[in-house]
Design a protein around this nucleic acid. Sequence first.
DNA 1: GTCTATAGCATGATAGAC
DNA 2: GTCTATCATGCTATAGAC
Lengths: 243, 243
Amino acid sequence: MTTSMTDNWPETLSYDAFLKEIQVSKNALYRSLYLQFVDEFSVKNQRIAVEKLALIFKATFRLANTQGFQAMTLRQLAKETGLSMGGLYAYIHSKDHLADLIYAFLNFFCSESFIKLEDLDQPPEQKLKTIIFSHIYLSEFMQPWFYFAYMESKNLSRNHKKNAIEAELITEDKISDVISLGIKKAVFKNIDATMFAALIKAMMQDWYLKRWKYQRRKISVDAFAQQVMEVVNDHLSARENIA
Amino acid sequence: MTTSMTDNWPETLSYDAFLKEIQVSKNALYRSLYLQFVDEFSVKNQRIAVEKLALIFKATFRLANTQGFQAMTLRQLAKETGLSMGGLYAYIHSKDHLADLIYAFLNFFCSESFIKLEDLDQPPEQKLKTIIFSHIYLSEFMQPWFYFAYMESKNLSRNHKKNAIEAELITEDKISDVISLGIKKAVFKNIDATMFAALIKAMMQDWYLKRWKYQRRKISVDAFAQQVMEVVNDHLSARENIA
DNA sequence: GTCTATAGCATGATAGAC
DNA sequence: GTCTATCATGCTATAGAC
């Protein structure tokens, strides 16, 4: 299942190594999207469709980012992509359908990636590190997608809300489980695993939610992940505090 | 300046003590709002105006929370408050004005509160604790306001965006400064203060951004603040890690 | 595969009665 | 102080030409 695993992941944790590991370039992202949902598009020429889909999604993220998805009009989207209103409807059936596609593909892509990255045989300390680094790196690779999913879910259908909440809790459960295991094996201090997992999640999410801040300060994704890891390690380190 | 400071704040940090300290009950909030912006409302009867303003803002938060401010229509708001479209316009000049009022009052109220709570003579450890606890407690007291400000700012005018970013950075600078001071005085470990301040902020913000999660898990605001504080202390504790 | 033109409807805002 | 009625605008979505 993990035969594609390179030798240096996750021992050498870096964004570059991560990109090699998931084996998807940014260019190939929209081809993957097109192939995943071919049936839903009336445009059958792959080259054209992939190109136009890239335009549409990138413009959607740009507009939703500056005014919100609900406030974005399809006229704006048409103008921003260079398509006409009619042309747009060859790719999306409705504005809601566009949101559906975003959530569905994000979900599909993340699941795929985690399968590639997961390694069940690692000890808790290493496994925790893998989860934290891969989540941050994935959120860097798909930043506009993560940001959109976070900021817009509350405004969309009940189904999208449920999906977003579930995604939130799944990551947290994975972190919480591995912390609990570490506590049981006495490699971590005895803390509230559920609670700390929530705080770790909050720190990780800051990377894609406040990207402007970190870019302005010239913090690299590698440096950020390292900082989060140090905070986590300090809180988990087995030495009990003697108040 | 701080003559109103009770004896037990911030030595005894609890949400109840905090509420006594800021001296504003939830009922008095909308009276304070009315008095702050009297000139802007055409309704001159205070009792009626305060009552209606409470209805309008609470309904706005409810609707913005489930579908977004931009997607909320004034017809919905009228229905939710029991007012007519015309009646609504006696309190707000436009939909934008409603957003203006929310940001202006939040800003005013937070500034007031921090003046009441700040104590410059504390040592760094105590000061950091005061800042962290008061920010979390304030965000609990004004939760819908904080949530609105965070989620909607990107969708609103450039001015609101700027305000939100500044508020974000002011808190962070306060935290960063006090950490730097503690490092200089050698009561804290020598870490990257700016970076850690950002992560602390992210953890604190989780309280009002994921309120559903913490409510479901029956975590009190006091317990949450305590957990954040422990993570912070573990990372700052002067013992240097011998890697 | 993409365009123009337009149907059909909901919106923010206001005027004027009570 | 609040209401009803109405206006101009701008929206999503589709039909049909090319």
